[in-house]
Nucleic acid binder design. Structure first.
Length: 444
RNA sequence: GCGAGUGUAGCUCAGUUGGUAGAGCAUCACGUUGCCAACGUGAUUGUCGUCGGUUCGAUUCCGAUCACUCGCUCCA
């Protein structure tokens, strides 16, 4: 119980820090905000791009058998008929005005009576659709209705044939994409964890059905390794949830879950999707999306193993995992120690990787020149205001792993001190070695 | 979507039994200081979430609405 209260406080602190330091804030706030939408500020957008770049490098650039794609958000409406979203995302619902129970009309035994309280005082059936609707062209009617994609993977299936032909890839191979997806969530909750506009990073891997479970295990291991090695997740911070109920076409599914302040939540799914998606798009489009294996003359419908990450949830997980308060020495009068707030973010995704600070404003010229050199290689920031200690703490709050201080000896000995965020220890480094020193620390 | 709570400066909050607001921190300037939120002086910041009603007058009372938090529901 006590821990729950602490976790609620933690969430509030994270939201407050994000707002105050320009990491994440409510969308359209001057108009009162809009439920389920969040903006990434100057530091948040840097972090988001860093995570995107890390995933893209990990999943696409370093692999010969995964290709990239950047498809449109609005697709032909039939795409969503084929995927099942139009059917499954759209239900006629009625509410009982008396006991407030909600029913799907098609699941009610008697559509005029509430099964719970037997009241007949029900609302008119109303359509609940989790897909966002828009219109293509200037005429707003049913014929011109289109939908914002509810997931980024469907356009991957739709473009499967084009990508394969263009790249001459043979099975097995994957197609990856990062992009926005939209869902009219009934109840957006928990900061950016469940929002109505969000970014997904998805990879669909196409293989022979006989090999599909091997690939499933492979991608599962790859993704776990990524979280441990690239994002620094410890064993007690994440867990694997194994789905017991599977879709009829799937052979396996796991979720990688993370310990958020509000409880365990899904961060990524590694799902076996069978031949379902390509089969459906073949049926609905009339185009045969099966694969001809020229080595043995066999034609197969590829089986799909998917890795699907929520980017916004990744950012939130990094913030939750990294938020730390600890006692630290202070030079303030009458106080022996003070609370230090820091974000322990992995250096490779920190919004600012290196802050360059003159020990005094008198040293601004040398420090600024050093900053301009460093800025080309790392996400960097220069700050000369207030005391050096205050600037360290400012950088701690946004998770800057290294502060480079240009001091009164620097001009003479051509060396600076590098201060570590987590240990607060300093090391003196020659300026000519600084870039390689930091590269060794930060990693890519 | 239902229920409860909350909404005052960038953040955390106080306050006004109805007469249009304050603190700490933050921010900025100057001085001082030379490695962990130092100090001094001064300064900036609010349509008191929004709209409407009652009132001579509303941040305060009433209604609606928006947003956030929690519980329920939902999570293909």
């Amino acid at each position: 119980m006590a821990e729950d209260v602490k976790d609620l406080e933690l969430m509030e602190k994270i939201v407050s820090l994000c707002k105050r330091r320009g990491i994440i804030f409510p969308s359209s706030e001057i108009y009162g905000g809009i439920n389920g939408f969040w903006d990434y500020g100057p530091y948040g957008s840097r972090m988001k791009r860093a995570v995107e770049a890390l995933w893209w490098k990990e999943m696409v650039e370093t692999r010969d058998n995964v290709e990239g794609l950047d498809s449109t958000i609005i697709c032909h409406p039939r795409v969503w008929a084929a995927s099942g979203h139009l059917e499954q995302f759209s239900d006629l619902m009625v509410d009982c005005k008396k006991c407030k129970t909600r029913y799907r009309v098609d699941q009610m035994e008697d559509p005029t009576t509430c099964a719970n309280c037997k009241s007949q005082d029900l609302t008119e059936p109303r359509e609940f659709n989790l897909m966002m609707k828009t219109f293509v062209g200037p005429v707003f009617d049913e014929e011109h209705t289109a939908w914002l994609r509810a997931e980024t993977c469907q356009p991957i299936f739709v473009d499967f044939h084009s990508v394969r032909v263009a790249t001459r890839q043979k099975l097995p191979f994957g197609i990856a994409q990062i992009g926005k997806a939209f869902r009219n969530e009934i109840n957006p909750r928990n900061f950016t964890f469940r929002s109505r506009e969000f970014t997904q990073m998805e990879m669909e891997f196409f293989c022979e059905d006989g090999d599909s479970m091997e690939w499933f295990e492979y991608w599962k291991e790859q993704r776990i390794k990524y979280y441990k090695e690239k994002l620094g997740f410890k064993d007690d911070f994440f867990r694997i949830y194994v789905h017991e109920k599977l879709a009829h076409y799937a052979k396996a599914a796991i979720d990688i879950e993370v310990k958020f302040p509000f409880g365990w939540g899904e961060l990524e799914g590694v799902h076996h999707r069978g031949t379902w998606d390509l089969t459906r798009h073949s049926e609905f489009s009339g185009q045969d999306l099966s694969y001809m294996d020229h080595d043995n003359g066999r034609k197969v419908m590829p089986t799909v193993v998917e890795t699907s990450v929520g980017l916004d949830r990744t950012i939130l997980a990094l913030l939750a995992n990294g938020y730390t308060e600890e006692k630290a020495a202070t030079a303030k009068e009458d106080m022996e120690e003070d609370t230090r707030v820091l974000l322990k973010l992995p250096a490779r995704v920190a919004p600012i990787q290196v802050a360059v600070l003159p020990q005094s404003k008198k040293l601004k010229e040398g420090a600024y020149n050093l900053y301009k050199d460093i800025d080309r290689f790392f996400r960097s920031e220069y700050d000369e205001t207030a005391s050096i200690g205050k600037r360290y703490r400012r950088q701690d709050e946004i998770g800057t792993p290294y502060c480079v201080t240009f001091d009164f000896d620097s001009a003479e000995d051509n060396a600076v001190t590098v201060r570590d965020r987590d240990t607060m220890l300093q090391e003196r480094v020659n300026v000519t070695q600084l870039r390689s020193y930091l590269e060794g620390k930060i990693g890519f």
